[in-house]
Amino acid sequence: MYSKRILFILFFLIFMILIGTFGYMMLEKWNFLDSIYMTIITLTTIGFQEVHPLSSAGRIFTLVFALIGFSILAGSISILSSAIIEWRVIERYRRKKMFDKIKKFKKHIIICGAGRIGKYVILEMLKSKKEFVVIDHEPSYIQQIIKELNLGEKDLYFIEGDATKEEILLQAGIMNAEGLISCLPEDSQNLFICLTAKSLKQNLKVTSFVIEEQNTSKFFLIGVDEVVSGNFIIGKRLALSMMNENILSFLEQVTYIEKQAYYLGNVDVKSHSSLIGKTLKDANIGHNVGLLIFAIKKAGETQYEFNPKSDHIVQTGDVMIALGSQHDLEKLENYINGS
């Protein structure tokens, strides 16, 4: 909308400059440089003296050109000014409306960084249908993602700012958030963001990307829950490509193919679950939901029990891992914790 107005104004200005230039060249037989110089000083009402004495036809042309040209120039400035003011008003209203919606978010995810890694984090969050807010100080990254993913600005909630600052995290609703993902390209930035986030809300689940593996311990030291090492993952995947080709293709299908039918999902057993105290055999998840639970992590533990036995007793805080469609995973959540 605004680009069309600007193009319209530029078109008319160029048109008037061409009319004036060729008018002086035809009527006064001046060269191109003298003609365009006379056109510009007349159109802008600078008022320098004439390049050469004007003929009667040239004076009449100058009078008409000055009146019409000045009117168009003044109108163009007016249109441009109103467009800028209108854009600022609309942008302020849009941002206020977005902030009002963010304030209503509960248990959402905050994504810090919309660069190369952040783009794929955002893509996965869009698939999950979970509410999230993106923070990045570079608006061009956010606009590029909106364009690449064919989104509208209403489909992506974002804040332009420095995620290391408390006020920006507060604007993103960190006090009501469930978790934060920091995926900036520098470990020092990610570390500071995690430290700031944990200082604002200690029970916030924080996951961070780390480039240098030796920095991992520093993240755990400040209370970061999960750390993903880029070099570590790349190294393991390169090795798998040679040693376990079928396993790698399976992982690709489950986690990396954009339009895959199945996802790895987890469900946390809540305190009100009707399955608490029952064995996996009695819970009969496979029959009632159609999914296989292939790993369980007990509350307070860090290791997963793969292929859990049928006599495993379901307890509050258990994390169950399953593979299935998005619909099936939602059914599993409802079956375990109720709708």
Score class of each variant (00 low, 15 high):
T39N: 06
A57M: 12
T42L: 04
H52P: 00
L43Q: 01
M38I: 04
I60W: 11
F48C: 14
I60N: 15
T45Y: 05
Y37V: 06
A57D: 11
L27D: 09
I36W: 05
P53I: 05
Y37H: 10
E28K: 01
L43I: 11
F61M: 03
L27K: 02
M38F: 03
I60S: 13
P53A: 14
M26A: 15
I36H: 04
H52Q: 13
Y37E: 08
E50C: 04
L43D: 02
D34S: 07
W30N: 01
F32R: 10
W30Y: 12
F48Y: 14
I41P: 00
W30I: 08
V51F: 03
S35K: 03
H52M: 12
E50S: 12
Y37K: 09
T42R: 02
I36P: 00
Y37T: 15
L27T: 11
D34F: 02
I60F: 15
K29I: 06
A57Q: 14
A57V: 10
T42I: 06
I46Y: 12
F32D: 04
I40C: 02
D34G: 05
Y37S: 13
L54C: 12
S56Q: 14
T44Y: 05
F48D: 11
M26E: 10
P53G: 11
T45P: 02
L54H: 10
F61W: 02
I40D: 01
K29Y: 07
N31V: 06
Y37W: 14
R59M: 10
T44H: 07
T45G: 02
T45M: 08
D34E: 05
F61C: 03
I41D: 05
L43S: 05
R59L: 06
F61T: 00
A57I: 05
Y37R: 13
Y37Q: 08
V51N: 02
L54M: 14
I40P: 01
T39E: 05
T45L: 11
T45E: 09
I41L: 08
L27G: 07
L27A: 10
T42N: 09
K29T: 09
Y37P: 00
N31K: 08
Q49H: 15
S35P: 00
I41S: 07
K29Q: 14
E28H: 02
I60L: 15
H52L: 09
W30R: 02
R59F: 10
S56I: 12
T45S: 13
E28Q: 13
F32L: 15
T45N: 12
N31Y: 08
L54F: 12
T42A: 01
R59H: 10
I41N: 06
Q49L: 10
I60E: 15
L33A: 09
